[in-house]
Structures are given as C-alpha cells and as structure tokens.
C-alpha cells in the first residue's frame, strides 16, 4: 500500500515534461495514474521520479478536425464515454470507454495513459486498431505520428520512445454507412478484457465494403483479425457470412491462458465475441 519514495514533478508545459524526462533517469510520466499508482503501491515498480502531465491543457479536449476525431491523450475514459461528439462519430469508442474499470477509474484514468501502458487486456488498443487511429507523440526532435498498427509492438510494449510523450489520438471519422461496436467479456475480478472485440463495418446496400475487426485480451498484444476482415469484405452482411468469417478470430496469434480462461476457451470466446461485435454493428 506504500510506494517507495520518489520525487514528484509537475510539468507546466509539454516542453517541460520532455525536459524533465530527459534530465532524470528512471522517471515515469504520470497522467491519470490508474495503471501506474497501483503498481507503485505494490512496489512492482519503483521509479525515482514521477512527472505529472495531467494538468497540461495541450493534452485535453475532444474535437473534430477536418474529418478526423482528435482526442487529447489526457482525456479521461469518462469524458469519452459521455462525449456526444464521440457517440455521433465513432460510437464504439464511447461504448468501450463505459466498460473500462469502474466509475471512479473512468473519472481519472486517461486514454493516453492506458495506450502508453499497453496492457494486453486493456480495451483501448483494440479500438485504436479497428479505427485505424494515428497516435501522435512528441519527443525531443518534435512530433511524429504512429499508426495504431505500428504502435503496439508487444506485451506491454509500444513504439513510444522513453523520451517521448503521447499527446493525442487521431481517428479518421468513418464514412456514412459505417457502424461500429465493441463487445467485451470481462475478467470478473479485475474487469479487464478476457476478450474485447471492436468491429467497424462500412456497407453499401447490405454489402460490406470495408471491415475492421480487432481484439484485445486474447494475445500478448492487441491485434487486427485480418482473416475476419478479408472473409467478410465484399460479402453480404448476414448471419451466415459472419459465422463463417469469425472462425479465424484467434488464428495466427499466441493465445494467452490464465485462471479465468484457458487458451482453448479464450479462442472460443474470441469467435463468440467477434460474432457479437459484428452482429451488434448493424
């Protein structure tokens, strides 16, 4: 319950945050802190410095910018869950935000913090992949954009450099005729995803033009189920085609196993939740 000692720094600007990050070895950025502080309390991690970026206005706000939904890294899950703009433009994001942790966690935990942490069972990575988000990061040499596909590199691993700050998430607003859904089977104690499936389908006259399906919780990192996408693209959106497509949900990945779901059961759930997400995105 008691973290090891550290020095707290409150950054007053992104630049200061970067400077602090570069001056101090063994420093961690602190946004909402809802992934970091629990680890500190159990002493699973013992950084010497914490750099608080939660008050930076540059990381706040949800807005639409020329066909793109821009979400600041410091936006809380709760803000996304309640955002009318998000609900209107990419509904699955709001739907997913409402399933993260609990009310209190959603009030403080941030999307940027969660993405940087890259818990393999966190919800956001699946949504970022399905929505083909671009993740903007700022480093000593300026800003760069990383596609979600490239961002999640492994088990708790991302393309974010140790000297970089995740600043915003840019999500292309899907064209008319697109529907989305996020469906989650929760680990009952932690409420992380055992399987989370995000689906986004664009249809013309009942035919799937574009299908994006991504999973979290299943493997050691979130992934896009290209097998499902390919199997459904160009096909009629109907039960038979969905059923046939979801069979590949957990193919080609190392499926995780724990007390709550063995590899076999998790793979099964991936298929079930792919079906649920695809069916709900109607």
């Amino acid at each position: 319950m008691i973290p090891t000692g550290f020095t707290y720094h409150r950054a007053s600007s992104l630049k200061e945050a970067l400077d602090l990050l570069n001056t101090h070895d063994d420093a961690k950025l602190l946004a909402g802190g809802h992934s970091l502080i629990p680890a500190l309390k159990l002493r699973l991690n013992q950084p010497a410095h914490l750099i608080d970026i939660s008050r930076l206005d540059d990381l706040k706000g949800i807005k639409e910018e020329g066909g793109t939904l821009v979400i600041g890294a410091g936006v809380t899950h709760g803000e996304i869950a309640h955002s009318d703009l998000v609900k209107e433009k990419v509904a699955m994001l709001a739907e997913a935000a409402d399933l993260i942790g609990d009310v209190q966690v959603r009030n403080v935990g941030t999307i940027g913090g969660s993405l940087a942490h890259a818990d393999p069972a966190a919800d956001w990575p699946a949504l970022m992949l399905a929505a083909e988000a671009e993740i903007t990061v700022l480093g000593p040499n300026g800003s760069r954009s990383i596609s979600a596909e490239d961002f999640f590199t492994g088990f708790y691993e991302t393309a974010l450099g140790e000297d970089e700050v995740l600043t915003s998430i840019r999500i292309p607003i899907p064209p008319a005729g697109t529907s989305t859904s996020y469906q989650k089977f929760m680990q009952p104690a932690s409420r992380f995803a055992i399987v989370g499936c995000a689906a986004m389908i664009t249809r013309t006259n009942g035919t799937c033009d574009r299908v994006r399906v991504a999973f979290t919780g299943v493997a050691d990192k979130a992934y896009r189920a290209k097998g499902i996408e390919d199997a459904l693209t160009g096909k009629a959106y109907d039960t038979g085609n969905i059923e046939a497509a979801v069979s590949s949900a957990a193919e080609g990945v190392d499926v995780m196993s724990d007390h709550f779901a063995s590899e076999e059961y998790r793979s099964h759930l991936a298929r079930v939740y792919a079906r649920k997400a695809l069916s709900a995105a109607s």
Partner: peptide, 17 residues
C-alpha cells in the same frame, strides 16, 4: 511472493515475451 499472488493475469504473457 507478490509475483505468485498478484501476477497471474500477466504471467503467461511475461513468460512468452
């Protein structure tokens, strides 16, 4: 210790990685 008690959720992932 703590690894056995609270790390279950991530252990197989750690080993794999």
């Amino acid at each position: 210790g703590l690894l056995a008690r609270t790390g279950q959720r991530v252990l197989s992932g750690v080993a794999n990685t």
